[in-house]
Design a protein around this nucleic acid. Sequence first.
DNA 1: GAAACCAACTGGCTTGAGCCACTAATGTAA
DNA 2: TTACATTAGTGGCTCAAGCCAGTTGGTTTC
Lengths: 261, 261
Amino acid sequence: MTTTQPGPEFHRGDFRAIAQDLRDAIARGDYQPGDKLPSERALATKHQAARNTAREAIAQLRHEGLVTAEHGRGVFVREKPRWMRFGRHRYSSAMRATNELGPFGSEAVAQGKRPHVDVPSIARVTPPPDVSDRLGLEHNTDVVRRENWYFADGDPIQIGVTYAPWAIVEGTALADSADMGPGGIYGLFESLGYAITYIREEIAARMPTNAEAEGLQVPDGVPVIDLWHTGIDANHRPFEVTNFVMRADHTALDYDMPIED
Amino acid sequence: MTTTQPGPEFHRGDFRAIAQDLRDAIARGDYQPGDKLPSERALATKHQAARNTAREAIAQLRHEGLVTAEHGRGVFVREKPRWMRFGRHRYSSAMRATNELGPFGSEAVAQGKRPHVDVPSIARVTPPPDVSDRLGLEHNTDVVRRENWYFADGDPIQIGVTYAPWAIVEGTALADSADMGPGGIYGLFESLGYAITYIREEIAARMPTNAEAEGLQVPDGVPVIDLWHTGIDANHRPFEVTNFVMRADHTALDYDMPIED
DNA sequence: GAAACCAACTGGCTTGAGCCACTAATGTAA
DNA sequence: TTACATTAGTGGCTCAAGCCAGTTGGTTTC
């Protein structure tokens, strides 16, 4: 542009306008899930803006979770993945008895996905204070720390880190084995005298840390659900704490409960 | 730089490096919550990068929810707000009997904040299908739609949109009044023959929409918790559905429940 | 003392240029 | 047919420059 007019300049490009344009087009269905958006360079030309401005608009949509960019291929409207739902009944004995797969596996299969669980580490550790507090332990009391990674169709969906007092698990499969046997982890706890009767679920949501974004391959604009689960027996003794971090675009929680018990 | 060396160029600036530098500094405590980070221009100089590169690094931290930028003032490490926790007992009759403020108000007061609830609209509408389904109604059956905005210290924290069958609420305060009387909304429902006995809570997390980000004044990098709550009476009839959208940086959910009832 | 002004500093946003890395389709040689 | 280059197109990232719009604090003026 020439510099003849020093008055209030008209912005030829405005990344908000471009972003809103794309949002509207997606909402209208001009671009369906999976469709490719115009290239950054094409958008810039169309809106008479610099490529960087178009780029900023796309960054906006990415952070909103509307689209994903693939290096060398293009920008695509995000497909809405089916959700896996988890609730209190995944801890029920009926679930344990009838289901070989465990709660994650059965949810995955119900969604037509191939489940897979990885147990990269089992170790005896001194736990962080928030774990000790939830377990009602002194801060220097050792626990077992079991890390679980849950995959659906090869994609990591959630991480669960389980802690239980060493005094309880010592000498059992809980202390050193990935395989919990047919009853699963809660079947094993029950055989040790800790039948899961109550649970406490503390639920928060936040953006993933750097490490989580990499490990869970969380795309831009997708938060994680940060869930602290405590298993409590009939005598109101907590015996197990698990911290789940789940991709919020694949996961929902679904609880039904009585108001007063 | 000169073009004499066509080999692999050394990037003087790299927004990831700058971002990690700042993350580390914040983690170390070099910058405390509320502290001001160096200006974009200062960061650029320090890292021998262009201002845009430093700017990109800061954008990264903003999206992670670590810092907030204030136009004309600077970039500040985000203060961790105290969390308001909500669980199933907020629906208990004991809560109703002893507490004039309601569950939101009492949580706010417990956190040292001044609560305030706004009811901008009460109307008779034909509900969206997901509401009808949750209420077990035909899709053309009218309901009352009550919109509630919850504030703490003047800041909007959550929005709740409640739906209930028009056939139930017609002629009562539920149909047209913001004031529910001493027993609150569930007291009123109980007097109409619908005592809340079970609840169902469907919990998801996502980034806020444009409108929500404005209405709730959600800063960058903060997701929202999207909660569908259904109130169910002793005969297992759903009589009320509320969709809460809450700032995830101020809100956590805390449920304890028996595994089997 | 109060109000108005001003200068310096901050982030917000855009431009246009350039190089790189990755992908997919095409062509070519074995 | 297979394997390997080539090439065009894509997003990733950086640079240097500039203008705008808030904020803050000091100075001047009344």
